[in-house]
Design a protein around this nucleic acid. Structure first.
Lengths: 139, 139
DNA sequence: ATTTGACCTGGAGTGCACTCCAGGTCGTAC
DNA sequence: GTACGACCTGGAGTGCACTCCAGGTCAAAT
């Protein structure tokens, strides 16, 4: 099967401009063209775009993705280095997840503070809230 | 206690330039100054910088952090909206963690493919690797 | 007294990842 | 046969979050 750029954009979740941009910066190989010179993406192209969007979701930089892409086009001999990139990225993602988990804990703590404040305001409505309560919340 | 900009940078993990930048864009209140006009950060300032770096780690935009910062300076009345921002961010972080988990699975799958390829190459060293093996790996 | 180093200011520059634009070419629908 | 919509190109523009720079001030050390 072959797909117009609009269809490829729809299926990959990237914009048409981004698709052309990725081609310009050599992140994807130039797709085939139809008789009128319009891009005709193959299933293979789509699969590669799909994988690229996953790498992007992991936070991989375009520079790094280009490195991976260029290794890929050099064939089997580069498999080791490609694997190394993926392993490194796996590590980075795991670390990022841990970091976000830590952030989640902090957010929960702060949200809980706000909830306690709400409860206290309800209880002693009209009374001045002690200064240290605000400290606790804004710190 | 009061800290020089260099010390504040060291303690917050931000650069000196970033500290001045955050002040310029009203993300932090201008700190006190010493007799020579140099910034003197308080423990309170440091605590706020600490929280900001956590928010940044969650991927919150500076625009959103500024919103939070400006609400904070408007006092208790804004607590509800501040809490809402935190709750929303908590949600975004949880979603991002889930997304990264999914990426981790894909990376594991790809890495596993590379490992299988390595084993096959070892076993039948010198033999041509079947075309579909490469497809599986590059898709 | 001068040198050093940390700090100051306003403003310009950077890198990233897109995103938009003007002006042009096709093939199909009316 | 012309109007339309989807596509094409090279290049410029955007938003974000810093980062760097020139030229200057000040207090302590030599």
């Amino acid at each position: 099967m072959s797909y117009s750029i609009a269809e490829a954009a729809r299926r990959s979740g990237l914009s048409i401009d981004t698709l052309r941009y990725y081609e310009r910066i050599k992140l994807v190989d130039p797709p085939a063209r139809d008789t009128a010179g319009r891009r005709a993406y193959s299933d293979n192209d789509l699969a590669w775009l799909g994988f690229l969007t996953k790498l992007r979701l992991t936070g991989m930089s375009i520079k790094r993705m280009r490195e991976y892409a260029s290794l890929r086009s050099r064939g089997t001999a580069s498999a080791g280095r490609r694997k190394a990139i993926l392993v490194e990225q796996r590590q980075a993602v795991a670390e990022r997840i841990a970091e976000l988990q830590g952030c989640l804990d902090i957010l929960d703590y702060k949200i809980d503070n706000y909830e306690q404040l709400e409860r206290r305001v309800l209880e002693i409505s009209g009374t001045t809230v002690p200064e240290n309560t605000m400290q606790e919340i804004s710190a």
